[in-house]
Simulated scan of single mutants.
Amino acid sequence: MDVLSDVISTMRIGVPHSSRTRHVGPWRDQFPAAPGAGFHIVLAGSCLLIPDNGAPLTLRVGDVAFLGRGIGHALTAVPGETDAETVLLCGAYQLDPSRAHPLLEGLPDVLHLPARLGHDASVRATVELLASELERDLPGSSSTVVALLDVLLLLILRTWLGETSTLTTGWAAALQDPGIAAALRAMHEDIARPWTIPELATVAGMSRATLARRFTALVERAPLAYLTWWRLTTAARLLRDSDATLAVIAHQVGYSSEYAFAAAFKRQHNLAPGRYRATTSPHEQSVRDFSLRSG
Rank of each mutant, 00 (worst) to 15 (best):
A125L: 15
A263Y: 09
L95C: 04
A244D: 11
A244G: 03
A131Q: 00
D120C: 08
S5A: 15
R221G: 00
S142C: 08
L239V: 07
G118D: 10
V87D: 13
L134E: 10
L75S: 04
M206Y: 00
S143E: 15
P51A: 09
D137E: 00
P26E: 13
T166F: 12
T210R: 10
S46G: 05
A235Q: 09
P178H: 08
L49Q: 02
L148D: 03
V110N: 00
L111C: 15
F215Y: 06
P223C: 14
D29E: 14
G14H: 11
L103N: 03
P26Q: 06
A37G: 14
A55M: 02
S46C: 12
L153Q: 09
L154Q: 14
D177G: 06
A209Q: 10
S98R: 14
D2Q: 12
S242V: 10
E258Q: 14
L129I: 09
V110K: 05
A264Q: 05
A263G: 00
I197C: 06
A92Y: 12
L232H: 06
V219M: 05
A74Y: 02
R288F: 13
G80Q: 08
S98K: 07
L154E: 15
A225W: 05
V146N: 04
T196M: 09
P223K: 08
T202S: 02
G162D: 10
H251T: 01
T245V: 06
E133I: 05
C90T: 11
P198N: 12
L57D: 10
W27C: 00
T86E: 04
H17L: 15
L167G: 05
P273F: 03
P198Y: 03
G118E: 04
A264L: 07
I180M: 13
F66M: 11
I156D: 03
S19K: 03
L238N: 07
